[in-house]
Design a protein around this nucleic acid. Structure first.
Lengths: 179, 179
DNA sequence: GATAATCGCCGTATTAAATTCTGTATCAAT
DNA sequence: ATTGATACAGAATTTAATACGGCGATTATC
């Protein structure tokens, strides 16, 4: 296992290469991870123990980070989605970053190239709760300004759909990834 | 079932209210949906058939949209994440919207309040692929301008964590949700 | 070019979990 | 007070997950 820590999120590289069959498996499991290994085997053309072995390998390697229930935000009274740009000065490694990730309303934290430094995705109960969160964020030392984009309506929300798309270039034809 | 279509994403309301036990269940399943009903029952203080019944109800009501494998984008050679603001004129219901959602690189489409109209999240293999996607988006009739925010580093990426937070206000104390 | 080793897969067997069924207690409404 | 509905627990059954042994193909090594 790789000990490199890329921010808070662990980004260990996949041990072995993900081949075409693996991508088919991932494509199915992204849609529905509750199916049996028998049916998964049918869909990708393998026996139940064989797919089981591959899924276990995909889990170990980190290609499958985890299998989670996807919750409807409205059902848990978090209907308000917003993106917030945060300008910072002297953006260091982790101190304020940890403080931001402590807030349970924060779902994503990205460092972006452009006219602002950080882009975070937050989900709250209503505008009042959003206001409270923003003021708490503003109190974080190093934060110089925030700009919020309140989502009025969401038309699409889906995870990464691997393999479904097309064939992928083999690794040797690929440019070095950005990160 | 409710027939109201809120964009492409179906947003049917939960049939029954999600109570404290349900939120505990959701909190566990968001972390790990592979555990047995026996252990899930232990954690929330119910028998295996009882939690099973509740989980089935949460699925039926739509509180659990689905249970999916969360994929590491790097493992499937989609390391480049970007957010794109799209300005449009005469933003209608679905024609261009459908065209945008056809692109498999697009993971989310949101309508936002602010100085731009749409905010989409895209994931590509590299900057060249991003450029291609942007030019294809630009060819969509109605799109007047785009502004991209390329993500340099992601520090946090997690789904909605229901119930873990605190107690929620009961429905009758709640303001009307924004959407 | 032959041999050994490794890897991935299948079929079977075993274990564990999902699911069904039945009965019971609790709460709500009549 | 009675009836109905709901939610839960326990036992039984069905189904799936997991472990094991063996086979064939590919790869490395001599």
């Amino acid at each position: 296992m790789d000990e490199e820590t890329d921010g808070i999120l662990q980004n260990r590289p996949a041990a072995r290469d993900v081949d075409a069959t693996d991508r088919k498996i991932l494509g199915v499991l992204v849609d529905d991870a509750t199916i049996s290994y028998a049916e998964l085997g049918d869909r990708v053309g393998l026996s139940p123990p064989a797919v089981h072995e591959r899924v276990k390998r995909l889990r170990r390697s980190g290609a499958i980070r985890n299998t989670a229930a996807i919750i409807d935000p409205k059902a848990v009274r978090k209907p308000l989605l917003a993106f917030v740009h945060i300008d910072t000065k002297g953006w260091g490694k982790t101190p304020e970053l940890m403080a931001i990730s402590e807030h349970p309303e924060v779902e994503e934290i990205h460092s972006v190239a452009g006219d602002t430094c950080m882009l975070i995705k937050v989900r709250t109960e209503d505008t009042r709760a959003l206001e409270g969160l923003l003021s708490r964020l503003y109190e974080t030392p190093g934060v110089t300004s925030t700009r919020s984009y309140v989502v009025l309506s969401t038309y699409l929300e889906r995870p990464v759909q691997p393999g479904i798309t097309t064939e992928w270039p083999t690794p040797r034809h690929m440019a070095k990834p950005l990160y």
